[in-house]
Design a protein around this nucleic acid. Structure first.
Lengths: 202, 202
DNA sequence: GCGCTGAAAATTGTCAACAATGTACACTTG
DNA sequence: CAAGTGTACATTGTTGACAATTTTCAGCGC
């Protein structure tokens, strides 16, 4: 089961729910979203829904057109996708390289817990859950850096990659890839850990 | 109601104005911003001001804390700044490389006009104007790519670099750097153009 | 039938009032 | 006097009404 995440504000809760729907393709690229619909569905007024729309458009999941409304964003084009992959790799490798010597047993314990969720999702072939926990895994690494601004830099880039989660033939491979990263960290082998991280981002 | 010409939405106008103040250091890192103050200053209600805050926090210029308010973001730390520079270079080089063969005379004309503004700003040592036109120059290049999503990807990264615009001893050097880019494009020399662009981003 | 016009409907944008939350500071208590 | 506590005050969060804009589509002339 997913670890509990605490959302402080109403817009964050709404955004989290919509993000799930977009990443799981329950909402497809081009689908229009109406403020009234969602405000009724969540039992709130349009204000928080509007703000959730803004948050998700900043993450690249929705596209906003003034006076026209909001649509689910298109996946990155085949031309742009390699750039996005490269940018995300650069950021995550930077973070791992930067924090490596200061990784605590508590960090590893936390990441292991997420890895267990990834394993469970893989074993039950639950692609939606896998997407969620994959995201949590990388978020946790980014967030362990002192500079909290890195997360804001990383999120819109990573989110654009998460929109299409179907690169693997064998879903268990995702678990193995993440396990390799943590194993290398535990063995204190920085270069292997970075290599494993790079291999996981594609 | 203010009778200022409106070719953009209210929140965008407010955001543009605040962005100027942040980039010109009229607002300094850590400065708190209050919704009421700005809504009175611009003669609108708090709604559009809130939305402007959201836009600017997505661009990394403001930092938002739920129930606490908004502050001007800190500059990227010395540790993170090289990463930001590298990311911005990757994106802009990708775009220039990608569009190079399809650059039209109209594009060049447009960019020359912005270059003229940069020159004027340099000659009058107007650092604020230089920041604005420097931003416009690179925006124009990014926006000439077919994939409009690239701009959304680029903006928060570039904005974080613009927050501290004091790297040059000789302000005229900024004009020369941008001129070199356009000259190389005009000479149809892709590699030199990319090199000049990379040199300009630091 | 085709394209234009313009009213009606649907939707987003803005506003001002009210609710919830966080902050400052005098006051108590040990 | 230091630390904690309660109560105003300041500020952000949410709401529902109203305004502005876009979309839809019936009516009209050609």
């Amino acid at each position: 089961m997913p670890a509990i995440e605490i959302y402080r504000t109403l817009p964050e809760q709404i955004a989290a729910r919509l993000r799930q729907d977009v990443l799981s393709s329950k909402l497809k690229p081009g689908d229009p979203l109406r403020e009234i619909d969602l405000s009724e569905r969540f039992g709130v007024s349009r204000g928080p829904v509007r703000e959730a729309f803004r948050q998700l458009s900043q993450q690249g999941l929705l596209v906003l057109e003034p006076n026209k409304g909001v649509r689910v964003a298109q996946n990155p084009s085949v031309e742009v996708r390699p750039l996005v992959v490269e940018l995300r790799r650069k950021i995550e490798v930077f973070v791992l390289d930067s924090i490596f010597e200061r990784i605590t047993p508590e960090d590893l314990e936390h990441w292991d817990a997420i890895l267990a969720d990834i394993k469970a999702a893989c074993e039950s072939s639950d692609v939606d859950a896998l997407t969620e926990h994959d995201l949590r895994f990388h978020q946790a690494i980014i967030r362990s850096h002192d500079d909290k601004d890195l997360f804001a830099l990383w999120q819109p880039i990573a989110m654009r990659m998460m929109m299409r989660y179907n690169r693997l033939d064998d879903i268990m491979e995702s678990y193995r890839e993440h396990k390799r990263i943590l194993d290398a960290i535990r063995a204190d082998d920085k270069q292997v850990a970075i290599k494993a991280l790079e291999d996981n981002i594609q």
